[in-house]
Design a protein around this nucleic acid. Structure first.
Lengths: 348, 348
DNA sequence: TTGAAAGCGCTAACAA
DNA sequence: TTGTTAGCGCTTTCAA
């Protein structure tokens, strides 16, 4: 149990004062080149690393935190990838706080980050109360990812879910579909006006259906693929089977694809479209049409907003990233007997 | 920017001393029920949360850290799920440090955790030098996940990769396969004697082939599905095409499945077996035979080891978790014209 | 340009 | 059972 070197050890080794060392490691103003060299040499010899806890006591941690609901959802991996990319070379470290599910767990994960006094938080939990976030953002910069509600306290980065949903609906409608079901999460996650991505997708879906004089059909499910699969199995076994399913995200879409297969049907008979364009969607055995909402870009932007807050920005910024529809086999068929319209150009 | 409540505020509010509050929040010995009640009431009123940094200065953080290479690999989600489950209700928080790839990034992520003085670390990086880990474990408890090399400094939790590989080879050989290729990562990750999972799987594969008088065929690739797909495409385009591919993990197996499809072949012609049994492996459109090495269990065990170290254990413990082969369609066919042997019992 | 010293919030040893 | 107090390693103000 060798005691780690402290700033005092370095000062002694270099023959200078503690504050001199502090200035060097913080790149602060007022150190001669010679002193800097001496100090850096001592740091190297002692393999010194400043204690984050001690720095935190004075208000800095050089750490950003990102809170993830459902760490198993590959869309969030994209976000983390983007965040890490934006952070590389800044000397700032990234920690992730995973949540299980629901508002309570999201809160816990956010508290884990807040307790560690990170210099900024990227939050993805759609269920945490805005007032709570507002409060949190009074203590450290916060970027809310995905949710459309705005606040003067924290910044937001969202995909344009209305546009993404429009892309999906235009695509399905232009293929001739009229019985389009929407597979989405529980009421809690889609409460009207809550501003969650799923709430927006649902509302815009319903609007498009209404505008065309079609009957909306909403199927609720939990967040897992298995639950989605069961829900869609029930849907397919019921009356007025849909010809297309628009799933609120790719995890649900994979469940839908599973149920379609289980029912002895194929995507030539029932089109399935997802949302997020996770990696597996492009796998040839899946070939799921999906909306790419640029998760890597979102993660990158979120971190940039955090860094600019740290640099002094005080006005709230709200960014929307444009989604793109990736057409694949799962929705390739035109309804009405005009043959297949498989577009494989984006396959793989 | 409202200042958060401190232990002094709570003491004042409750009309007791600072140390009394400290004892209550630490559940320490020597507080009357009445004092505990008063303090807890004050804590509630002020919404007090102890600063982790200040506690860290005195040696405790009530935080465990888990370092993940490749956060996009769904096997690691299982590990995190298990770790969170083991931690729920303990009052200990979990943070995740994601690494990008390679030894250097793994080191960085481990340093991120060490810098935060977590009370224990679950490390998954297969490439970090044992001496470095040994050193780290002198400062805080470390559990190495997956790697088979042992140390008196840190505990290990591994899958039994020799047994898992045996299950795969027995399965493929019993189906009549003789030209079995092994798809694995770069030499760096499979260095003989390094004790990485991939090194063990490779060595045991080669041994099984040798023992049967068969020629081993090893295909190297990067860690991504796309790279695996390209590598397998080259393999299939070359001479002596294999009849079966044993992939070192499911990500590589998915790439192999993609390449098989691209080549206009099916898994009736080329069997594919993976390792990890990630969730998508059981999807009907994929139906990948794979070795389930119980990632959730591994994560749970790892955290338990950390907690028992914290409770005073000093002797090193090395656990191996038994793997199970999940047979699915991707390897269902018997070679030699005896018809299909599809086992769907574990499908879905 | 350099150094001395106060103090961040907490824990733990000790005194009462 | 309760309270007093020293001190963890760092940053930052201020003086030299």
């Amino acid at each position: 149990m060798n005691r780690a070197a402290t700033i005092n050890d370095v000062a002694r080794e270099a023959g200078v004062s503690r504050s001199a060392v502090s200035k060097v490691i913080r790149d602060a103003y007022g150190v001669s080149d010679e002193m800097r060299a001496r100090v850096n040499a001592a740091i190297g010899r002692l393999d010194y690393r400043p204690r984050v806890a001690a720095r935190a006591m004075r208000g800095v941690t050089d750490t950003l935190g990102i809170e993830l609901p459902d760490i198993g959802n590959p869309f969030f991996d994209k976000v983390v990838t983007g965040a890490m990319a934006a952070l590389s070379g800044t000397g700032c470290q990234l920690i992730v706080a995973p949540a299980s599910a629901g508002a309570e767990e999201g809160l816990q994960a956010l508290r884990t980050l807040a307790d560690r006094e990170v210099d900024g938080i990227v939050a993805i939990s759609p269920l945490v109360a805005p007032t709570w976030l507002e409060d949190l953002s009074g203590r450290m910069p916060v970027v809310m990812l995905g949710r459309h509600d705005r606040s003067i306290g924290y910044d937001t980065v969202t995909g344009d879910d209305a546009e993404g949903t429009r892309l999906v609906m235009d695509h399905l409608l232009s293929l001739g579909h009229e019985r389009i079901a929407h597979l989405t999460r529980s009421e809690e996650v889609t409460a009207p006006g809550s501003g969650t991505p799923h709430a927006v997708r649902l509302a815009v879906y319903e609007e498009h259906m209404r505008r065309r004089g079609l009957t909306a059909s909403v199927v609720r499910t939990g967040r897992s693929e298995a639950e989605a699969r069961e829900a869609v199995a029930r849907l397919l076994g019921g009356p007025r089977r849909p010809t297309a399913i628009f799933a609120g995200n790719d995890t649900l879409a994979l469940g839908a694809l599973g149920a379609v297969g289980d029912a002895g049907l194929s995507t030539r008979e029932i089109s399935v479209v997802g949302y997020d364009d996770v990696e597996i969607a492009s796998h040839p055995a899946i070939s799921l049409t999906s909306v790419d909402q640029a998760g890597v870009e979102m993660g990158r932007r979120a971190v940039e907003l955090l860094l600019s807050r740290r640099a002094g920005r005080t006005d709230a910024v709200h960014l929307a990233v444009m989604p793109v529809l990736r057409r694949r086999r799962s929705s390739g068929r035109r309804i009405g007997g005009h043959g297949e319209l498989v577009d494989r150009s984006t396959d793989g």
